[in-house]
């Protein structure tokens, strides 16, 4: 399949990345090549083959749901460069 510039622009928007005209051009060609290579997958007969999501065969790894203090809350919140109000990060209005 061929990837169009419109598709690339749309994907970038979904991924929250701005692209310049020149970048759309560049990524359309590069991603097109990669997808061309990946289409090899369609030659494989996978009829009835299950999907592998977890490769070592682990199933539900459950544990008690206990509340434990992380211990470094202040250091963690200090990682943000945005204003901190009442131990919360203040961001711009979303709506």
């Amino acid at each position: 399949m061929k990837l169009t510039k419109e598709q690339v622009a749309h994907i970038a928007k979904l991924a929250r990345i701005n692209l310049t005209e020149a970048e759309v051009e560049k990524f359309t060609s590069q991603l097109g090549n990669i997808i061309g290579f990946i289409e090899k997958l369609n030659e494989v007969d996978t009829e009835g083959i299950p999907e592998t999501n977890q490769v070592t065969g682990l199933q539900n790894a459950s544990r008690e749901d206990e509340v434990k203090p992380f211990g470094f809350e202040e250091d963690l919140i200090a990682c943000s460069q945005n204003p901190i109000v009442d131990n919360q990060i203040k961001v711009k209005k979303s709506i």
Binding site: L41, P50, E51
Partner: peptide, 20 residues
Amino acid sequence: FALSAGYADKFYKKALQVRT
């Protein structure tokens, strides 16, 4: 792209089967 509507089965699901 691989996870987007219309392509997830064609690409992502197929890749997980090939992984098997």
